[in-house]
């Protein structure tokens, strides 16, 4: 198993009137090469789960395993050795006052110890240029432009490249197209598909967009109130439609899907 969550529970504001159980004894395993999409209404626990996998949050009980190793007590920067991550906010994944090549150099060191050698060398610059060309955005000609000058779509595409070009064991995508306009979202979705296939990355993608969740990946998970309530993979997933998903949700929960965004997004 590449990733395993075992009996993971997380409660916020425990013992207060604001107490909220974000995750209830979640079990999840990913085999190498799995591409799992996660859907669910707001507050279902999707982002909490991503933060617990990446090490930004720690579970109250339960454990997180990557490559057969218990990483539950490792902090975010220690786990980042195995994990590439793209956030919802296009501003979150890059450093705005640094140039494109400096950002890439920073990402390039994800799996290596940082030294007092120069971050951007001629050899690396060539490599960066080549990698940027795969985005088809012309960024390979703007290596020394500050990232703060890029548009949201360009920054998100760059974030995706930075998270993936060092071939992480696990790729976490946290609604990474949600903040983009439809055309840009489509572009980043296509790039995601291309990159994941090219490097055969094991991927976990949270999305609000059901259509996107159906189109991408070989497995689909639906979450609600801190639990995984529905799962489909292989042929079963291939034959799913948005209507079927909504019916499933009603059948299991006996209510309308809570978030309009989940339907419309």
């Amino acid at each position: 198993m590449l990733l395993a969550l075992k009996q993971v529970t997380k409660v916020f504001n425990e013992g207060t009137i604001d107490e909220k159980v974000a995750l209830r004894s979640i079990n999840l395993t990913l085999a190498p090469g799995d591409f799992v999409t996660i859907i669910g209404s707001n507050g279902a626990g999707k982002s909490t789960m991503m933060n617990i996998i990446s090490g930004r949050l720690f579970p109250d009980t339960g454990s997180v395993w990557i490559n057969g190793k218990d990483v539950t007590s490792l902090r975010e920067h220690e786990r980042a050795r195995y994990i590439g991550r793209v956030f919802q906010d296009p501003l979150a994944g890059t450093a705005p006052n640094m140039t494109i090549e400096e950002n890439l150099a920073l990402a390039y060191n994800r799996t290596k110890r940082r030294t007092l050698k120069f971050g951007v060398t001629k050899k690396r610059r060539d490599f960066f240029r080549e990698a940027l060309a795969t985005l088809h955005l012309g960024l390979e000609n703007r290596l020394t432009a500050k990232v703060g000058l890029l548009s949201g779509g360009e920054r998100q595409a760059l974030s995706l490249l930075m998270a993936t070009f060092t071939k992480p064991d696990l790729l976490l995508l946290d609604e990474h197209t949600a903040a983009l306009d439809p055309a840009r979202a489509e572009l980043v979705t296509e790039l995601t598909k291309e990159i994941v296939e090219k490097y055969k990355l094991t991927t976990l993608m949270v999305t609000h967009n059901m259509e996107q969740a159906l189109r991408l990946g070989n497995r689909l998970i639906m979450m609600d109130q801190g639990q995984i309530i529905f799962e489909a993979s292989g042929n079963e997933k291939q034959s799913l439609t948005v209507e079927r998903l909504l019916q499933e949700f009603q059948r299991i929960r006996g209510s309308q899907f809570a978030s309009d965004r989940a339907v419309l997004g």
Binding site: S54, R56, R75, E76, H77, E78, A80, R81, I83, R85, F87, L91, A92, G93, T94, A95, P96, N97, M98, E102, N103, A105, L106, A107, N109, R110, T111, R114, G119, M162, A163
Partner: peptide, 18 residues
Amino acid sequence: LALRATGDNKQMVSSFSA
């Protein structure tokens, strides 16, 4: 570079092992 990124976008630096 990691030092500069720490002042520029702290969140992002930790996700790149710094």
